[in-house]
């Protein structure tokens, strides 16, 4: 166990050393979440002004949606991009011939994804409070569970993306940035699930984030914790992690058979 934790730390140390040496990388982590928050913050301020109600609940729902969706986005990108860093630095060969197990690799990537997400999202949360008076944590401790559920979903999607990179090499790299954006309409970030056409509601029901945002709206508008949506979010997270974890494992072994681990960066 101790050796296993040390190997995970070795992988994290490698990436933390990279950030210590490069403040632009740190800045880049914060850039998009803050930019998104600013744009949506002004939109909500405008809408709130039209309604003559600066403390509009709608404003809170929009900003809360933006900030929480960034948790999923940054977790997914943090995982996938940390893996890509190894490909770009042509270091993957050394990593894969070290005693680092695939499960430890995944644990290291999840740890780095969490750190990257916190560095990216927390400044945006603080700015939302400072600029627009929106406190994400006014929903109460349940917001930590929302964070956790969205992080798990981000990791699950990233496992799938990493599996695609193992299978298709550099050609699949753009998925690291784009794939979760494709889920945005069905994640019901800014509108209730019932807004979607019935057929698409079935799709949304299978996405953990859609349940998180239903739960967030219940917390913001009614001040209650919706146990059903919270339970569905975590249940689906578990299912996604299991399925996509198996896909990752299968692709890793397929790459060992096909020789893709030797040519993955080419």
């Amino acid at each position: 166990m101790r050796a296993s934790l040390r190997r995970v730390w070795g992988l994290c140390y490698r990436h933390l050393a990279l950030y210590r040496r490069s403040w632009p990388r740190l800045l880049e982590l914060m850039y998009w979440p803050i930019l998104q928050m600013l744009v949506w913050g002004f939109v909500t301020a405008y809408l709130a002004g039209l309604q003559q109600n600066t403390a509009s609940v709608a404003a809170g729902i929009l900003l809360g949606g933006v900030l929480l969706w960034e948790v999923a986005l940054r977790s997914q990108m943090g995982f996938a991009i940390t893996f890509l860093e190894e490909i770009w630095s042509r270091n993957l060969g050394h990593i894969f011939v070290s005693p680092l197990r695939p499960g430890e690799l995944v644990a290291g990537l999840m740890t780095m994804a969490t750190l990257r997400m916190l560095v990216g999202v927390l400044p945006a949360v603080a700015l939302a409070w400072a600029l627009y008076g929106f406190g994400l944590f006014r929903m109460g401790p349940v917001v930590v569970l929302f964070f956790a559920a969205l992080m798990l979903m981000g990791w699950a999607v990233a496992l799938g993306v990493t599996a695609m990179i193992l299978r298709h090499g550099a050609g699949a790299e753009p998925l690291a940035w784009s794939v979760l954006f494709g889920l945005t309409p069905f994640a019901c970030v800014f509108y209730p699930l019932s807004t979607l056409p019935v057929a698409l509601q079935w799709v949304a029901q299978a996405i953990p984030a859609a349940h998180v945002f239903e739960g967030m709206r219940a917390a913001l508008t009614e001040g209650r914790i919706d146990g059903y949506h919270l339970g569905m979010a975590f249940g689906l997270d578990l299912l996604w992690l299991l399925v996509l974890g198996r896909v990752f494992r299968a692709q890793f072994e397929a790459a060992r058979r096909s020789g893709a681990l030797l040519t993955i960066g080419e």
């Binding site: 070795g10 050393a17 630095s89 270091n91 060969g93 070290s98």
Partner: peptide
């Protein structure tokens, strides 16, 4: 192998520390 690189932006000491951790 000269064909498998070590992370370029990390210092030599940092690189060696990474592998010391990975090999426990």
């Amino acid at each position: 192998s000269p064909y498998v690189a070590l992370p370029h932006r990390l210092s030599v000491a940092e690189n060696l520390r990474v592998y010391a951790h990975l090999y426990d």
